[in-house]
Computed example of a mutant assay.
Amino acid sequence: MHIVPVILSGGSGTRLWPVSKPERPKQLLPLTADETMLQLTAVRTQGFGAASIGRPILVSNAAHADIIDEQLQQINIGDYSVILEPIGRNTAPAIALAALEAQPSDALLVMPSDHVIDDLPAFHDAITRALPLVAQGWLITFGIEPEGPETGYGYIQMGQACGDQVNKVVRFVEKPDVADAERMLTEGDHAWNAGIFLFRADAYLAALKRHQPGMMAAVRASMEQAKRDGPRIFPDATAFHSCPSDSVDYAIMERETQVACVPVAMGWSDVGSWDSLHAVSNRCTDENAVRGDALLLGARNCLVHSDGPRVTLVDVDDLIVVVSQGEIMILKRGESQKVRKVTEALKALAAVTSSQ
């Protein structure tokens, strides 16, 4: 089977403010390695031998076109297409754009551009287990074996086996409260929803036409009228603006019957907060994680991320300190979901200032 990597790179990454900003979101930053998260994603299928791998298709914000080209050239990805959305319409239309660009029989391996996967052999094995069902027209999602009662992720309930360590999906579960997360963990038939998918292009488009005909029509029209410039594809803005906005989970996966989940433990993280970045970072003495210039004396369980000035911490525990682009943010470790409040407050402040 011919696998085409589809890399979704439309996110703004505001939860990692002030390092990640709309003009340069987290997928375009080197947060966990010398390479950016986009670069790490682009090479994630290298070494996979169970099927042929085609040229990647990226779906991205048009404002990031130049930097995406630059970063892919740095890692010698010479043959790729990048579809530049005139406006964000969530993951269901984004995947449809890629499906229309691919060949109908291509298996689309849909991956967010800003995730960490440490165990690539485990990921490749999970793909191999999924391929027989993909060939039959099933829609496959990859579920992460839970490490605890996490409330920040959606869950997938798995039912009867339908392949080699592959289970039919019973239902998708919204982000739960602590009690429900603990219950699902105890039951043992739930996985975290990683937002990684594998399906034939024609199977996805057929499902989209069944359940979201208006979305299908708008996306098809935008691609039929698209302009092309080398690897860059510009869907027609007028047609795409008329497209409904919805996630692939809501629009397709929750509505289809031939949906299966491949559970896998592969060192996965969505790096959705400064706390999760601390969790996946290499830690030095006293469980501190440092990127940039820092002096830590008696500090424990801290994350320091600085793009220039030295940060000195003395006899403090569980702090996140971020210095980036002239902004400084300090908060308690375990509270990094509150960064969203910071970005909202800054937007409100900017609105007040501009009105004066």
Rank of each mutant, 00 (worst) to 15 (best):
R171M: 00
N90W: 09
M158A: 13
A42P: 09
I330F: 00
L40M: 04
S306Q: 10
F142W: 02
N61P: 11
D318H: 03
R340M: 12
P30H: 02
M215P: 00
L58R: 09
L16W: 04
M184T: 12
K175R: 07
V264W: 06
H64E: 00
P213N: 03
H190Y: 12
P235I: 15
C284Y: 12
A181V: 01
L16A: 05
Q27A: 15
G47Q: 02
E187P: 14
T312G: 09
E344V: 03
T36V: 10
F197L: 15
E224F: 14
R183I: 07
A206Q: 05
E344I: 01
Q225N: 05
R228M: 14
V43K: 11
L8W: 05
R183T: 08
R232E: 03
M223K: 11
I127K: 13
P25L: 15
L198T: 08
M37R: 07
T91L: 11
P309G: 09
A203Y: 00
I140M: 06
V169E: 10
A51I: 00
R183P: 03
V82S: 08
V116Q: 11
D270M: 14
G159D: 08
P235T: 13
T128M: 10
V342K: 09
L297T: 09
V314F: 09
L58D: 02
A33Q: 15
R340D: 06
L296E: 05
P176I: 07
V352L: 05
Q103N: 05
P235A: 06
P263L: 00
I328Q: 11
D249F: 10
T343V: 06
A294W: 05
I196D: 01
R210N: 11
S52F: 04
V134H: 02
A217N: 07
Q157A: 09
F197M: 08
A191M: 12
E327Q: 07
L58V: 09
V169N: 06
T41L: 14
D236S: 00
M215A: 01
T91H: 05
K227I: 05
L303V: 03
S105V: 08
Q46P: 00
H115V: 15
T238A: 06
S81W: 00
D66T: 09
V43Q: 10
K26P: 12
G49D: 00
L29W: 04
T353G: 03
I144R: 07
D34K: 06
R210V: 10
L120W: 13
P30Q: 05
H305E: 07
D189Q: 04
T285K: 09
E150K: 14
V110I: 15
S245Y: 09
A92S: 09
L205F: 10
T312C: 01
L277Y: 04
L198Q: 10
Y204A: 14
V110F: 14
A201D: 14
H211M: 13
R340A: 11
M329H: 01
I328F: 09
R15F: 13
I57E: 08
P104A: 11
Q103G: 07
T343P: 02
Y250C: 04
